[in-house]
Design a protein around this nucleic acid. Structure first.
Length: 833
RNA sequence: GCCCCCGUGUCCCAACCGGCAGAGGAAGGCGCCUUAAAAGCGCUGUGGUGCGGGUUCGAAUCCCGCCGGGGGCACCA
């Protein structure tokens, strides 16, 4: 068959030929380049930039397809759309590959980025490639370093020594957010604790604001992200209470959420790994304490987290004074108290806290209930509602009495009393910890600090940025527990920017989450060479109108990016405090009910799917599969079916016999109504992210048009052209190639100088949305007995009358008495007998 | 253990504020077209919406209690 004949085949189009035909056209037209100076209203459609770990996979295909629906929709609606794409290209996989292959991580990174860009373009994602960048590019990471310096100057970056999460596999420390169930988020190895001096960002300064901001985001962000962030920030309210310690000047302050239970405090417990425990222990108890601490340190994080293991501890040999009773209580060290939460010390109230109950039971300490337990209560500690008792206990003298008060009232009274006596005060605590940002690995942005024996920590001056990575490759990069940078002697040894004397560079690199905390700003002015970004442009484009990405970043990237934005606002660089106004999380593409994995052998190769069904059919399948947030089981999907539908839609464009540009006014009204309704509803559906329903509606329109052509108004009717043009524009959101092909076949783009993607949203005549009759359902006792065609503005009385007059309704009522008639004009009447 | 989301036909999924349970697709069945098959075109849906209660004229939708699935937090005082 000649090529000419193939083009003339009336039933199917050649998927590959169509893809090859339009790509160069789009390359030439560049229809998705965002113009900063456009007079149109701006929309910023952002999707999480990928780590270039290889070629694109099904997961990328899904996000990009969903995201593209909105970006392309906004273009069609006449907005100027910023839809950028770049690469989060620092990180471990490149480094590990470089060690394996004895090369530089940049080699692997560059190759993967080139491959990914090529695939994105074939996939026809509407990204503006003039704005792309990679975070591992010195032109980018110099500004990552600059931001670090600014944070440092504001007191938001600091170094401290403390026990940190350590991944023995990756040989680096991890942020709290990167430890999942005691294991490394990246490699799954069991995380251990290590005492190290590390860099932190003071995200806790913003804890309250990060929490408050969620109230607003709740309306436009997915619930699960908002709740995950709320839980992670973990605000709690309670009190700080000072306990005097025998033979010690300073009291020990504890944090409690239940100051009302203070009369039940029968001991105090201090975190065994806190400095406080070390300070408090008596000489007599020191050997026992040190032995216990040694034992605790050997335990893994997973063991430590197990809530069902028995409570252990050691008596520190000192006593504390209960500030409300004057009673002497023992002070113990234990591993069930966390050193880095609250004050690292807790008042032990076994009657009201299950952990304290278990500890008291194990150690033979007394238990006093301070809340009356309900009838029939069979548990141990009781933390519920009830009147206070034993507060104080009979025979105990105290200036404070809480007996009989509810939990809330007792809390308030206890705090008032503590404040008055100056032995405590109301307090708020957050679960959120500061963000540990140093990493002992190579492929990241070096921390721009020099350590000088004279001047201490000195920032590398702005004009000396970027601090470039030394050229290391292969075995030089092997993780050894200290950064490979520290071993690059020539690089490490430098002079102090302040005094000029010999000094050393900080050998750690930054967490790659630092890179991705500000990339959305950079897209607004990606080519700036003398500043981090152009604030005016950032303020013009941001906050982003949409952010599409995976829910796995709920407490990582999505929290860090919010933090950065608040700091940038405080610095006066941006005029908003939240970076992403709306957010959409897509589900996973799974196969046969399970996550795709090499070990299961259930992986679906994107390239093979694209070869077999074409870009459009794969995109359509992903968009049509279901709500975007739901997982897609590829085994249940039918890309064949998608392609069949696209062929069917395409066929319509060949059947249209009218000329382009004609007026639709005289067209078949029934079909015109379907078109108008579809176009109108599609807009609302896209805006509420119900893309699968949009596709279903387009399928209906295609079916209706098919019927109109074959057995209705015929192919020459203007309404048919109107419908098919609408199909092409609507399909351009999901299946850009076939939409373009249809548009051309309709005679609309003979010179290939304009793409259907920018054709504009079809105009809808509002008159066509108004129905002249509505079907009214008449129920008798809730069962449908008749249907009436009525005017949409029919009055209640007229409708009631018409319904009761209907013979079928009369028959259904029979000789029963009509008790009430519920009328919901114009759609429903319910006769109650 | 606490918190959040979900459960509709064989499968994937629709159904605005409570108002006709079924839009769309897949699979299956039947027919037309064809010498035949594929493609195409058309026709084809008894599941009382996981279970049990409740509210209501009316419940997939709201409330309560279960069951099942997914997610978040978890020795955070």
């Amino acid at each position: 068959m000649s090529e000419h004949q193939q083009e003339q085949d009336p039933t199917t189009y050649d998927v590959t030929a169509v893809e090859e035909k339009w790509r160069p056209v789009w390359d030439r037209l560049q229809p998705f380049r965002a113009d900063d100076d456009s007079p149109r209203e701006k929309k910023y459609a952002l999707t999480m930039f990928p780590y270039p770990s290889g070629d694109l996979h099904m997961g990328h295909a899904e996000v990009f397809a969903l995201h593209d629906v909105v970006a392309r929709y906004w273009w069609q609606r006449g907005f100027e759309v910023l839809n950028p794409m770049g690469f989060d290209s620092f990180g471990l996989p490149a480094e590990n590959a470089a060690i394996r292959n004895d090369e530089h991580p940049a080699t692997y990174t560059k190759a993967n980025i080139a491959k990914s860009i090529e695939s994105c373009q074939k996939y026809a994602a509407s990204f503006d490639w003039t704005r792309t960048f990679n975070t591992s590019d010195p032109e980018y990471y110099r500004w990552t370093q600059w931001l670090f310096a600014k944070f440092y100057e504001r007191g938001l970056a600091y170094r401290k020594n403390s026990p940190v999460n350590w991944c023995p596999q990756d040989q680096t420390v991890l942020a709290n957010e990167q430890v999942v169930q005691g294991t490394c988020e990246r490699c799954g190895a069991e995380v251990t604790k290590k005492e190290l001096t590390q860099w932190y960002f003071k995200i806790t300064d913003y804890a309250q604001e990060l929490l408050d901001g969620l109230d607003e985001l709740e309306r436009t962000w997915p619930d699960r992200v908002v709740t995950a962030q709320r839980n992670w920030i973990g605000r709690s309210e309670g009190a700080h209470v000072d306990f005097a310690i025998q033979g010690r000047e300073e009291p020990v302050t504890v944090y409690t959420t239940r100051p009302d239970t203070i009369f039940g405090t029968t001991f105090m417990v201090v975190a065994v790994d806190a400095a406080l425990a070390e300070e408090l222990v008596t000489d007599a108890q020191r050997p026992a304490f040190e032995a216990y601490r040694e034992e605790v340190r050997k335990a893994s994080e997973i063991e430590r987290l197990a809530t069902d293991r028995p409570k252990t501890g050691v008596d520190l040999g000192v006593t504390a004074t209960n500030p409300v009773t004057g009673e002497q209580i023992p002070v113990w060290a234990t591993d069930y108290v966390l050193a880095d939460y609250g004050t690292g010390a807790v008042m032990g109230v076994p009657g009201g806290d299950q952990r304290d109950w278990e500890f008291a039971t194990a150690m033979g300490l007394p238990i006093v209930r301070t809340t009356e337990v309900p009838e029939g209560f069979e548990g141990e500690a009781y933390a519920g509602e009830g009147p206070a008792i034993n507060s104080p206990a009979p025979g105990v003298a105290s200036a404070l009495t809480l007996n009989g008060l509810s939990v809330a009232d007792a809390k308030r009274a206890a705090i008032d009393f503590l404040e008055e006596m100056k032995v405590g005060r109301g307090a708020v605590n957050f679960r959120l910890r500061d963000w540990l940002l140093s990493r002992q690995r190579y492929w990241g942005a070096p921390i721009p600090v020099v350590h000088c024996p004279v001047d201490g920590e000195v920032l590398v001056p702005e004009d000396q940025l970027p601090v470039l990575l030394p050229e290391l490759r292969g075995a030089d990069l092997k993780p050894q527990g200290t950064s490979p940078l520290a071993a690059a002697t020539e690089w490490v040894n430098t002079s102090c920017p302040t005094c000029g004397g010999p000094a050393t560079r900080d050998g750690d690199t930054m967490d790659t989450f630092v890179d991705s905390s500000w990339y959305m700003f950079r897209y607004c002015s990606p080519h700036e060479t003398d500043r981090v970004f152009d604030s005016a442009k950032v303020n013009a484009w941001m906050p982003t109108n949409l952010y599409v990405g995976g829910v796995e970043h709920a407490v990582l990237h999505l929290l860090y990016g919010r933090f950065f934005t608040k700091v940038l606002n405080d610095m006066g660089l941006v005029d908003f405090r939240e970076p992403w106004s709306a957010q959409l999380n897509q589900g996973f593409v799974i196969n046969q009910g399970k996550k795709m994995s090499k070990s299961l052998g259930n992986g679906v190769n994107l390239g093979e799917q694209l070869d077999a069904f074409g870009v459009d059919a794969v995109r359509l399948t992903l968009v049509f599969a279901g709500p975007p947030e739901d997982d897609i089981d590829w085994a249940n999907m039918s890309p064949e079916g998608s392609l069949k539908f696209l062929q069917r839609a395409w066929r319509l464009s060949g059947d249209v016999t009218s000329e382009p540009g004609l007026s639709f006014d005289t067209g078949d009204v029934a079909l015109r109504r379907v078109t108008a309704r579809t176009v109108h509803d599609a807009a609302e559906l896209v805006e509420s992210y119900r893309f699968n329903v949009v596709v279903a509606r387009v399928m209906e329109l295609v079916n209706a048009t098919r019927r109109a052509i074959d057995s209705g108004c015929g192919p020459a009717d203007p309404a048919v052209r109107e419908a098919v043009e609408a199909v092409a524009v609507l399909l351009s959101l999901v299946a850009p190639y076939v939409a373009e092909e249809m548009w051309e076949r309709l005679g609309n783009n003979p010179d290939h100088d304009r793409t259907v993607a920018r054709a504009g949203w079809p105009a809808v005549d509002p008159a066509l949305l108004v129905e002249d009759t509505v079907t009214c359902v008449v129920q008798v006792k809730g069962k449908v007995k008749a249907r009436l065609e009525v005017a949409p503005d029919v009055t209640e009385d007229a409708l009631r009358e018409a319904a009761l007059a209907d013979p079928d309704v009369q028959r259904a009522i029979g000789d029963a008495t009509v008790r009430t008639v519920i009328v919901r004009a114009p759609k429903l009447v319910n006769v109650v007998v």
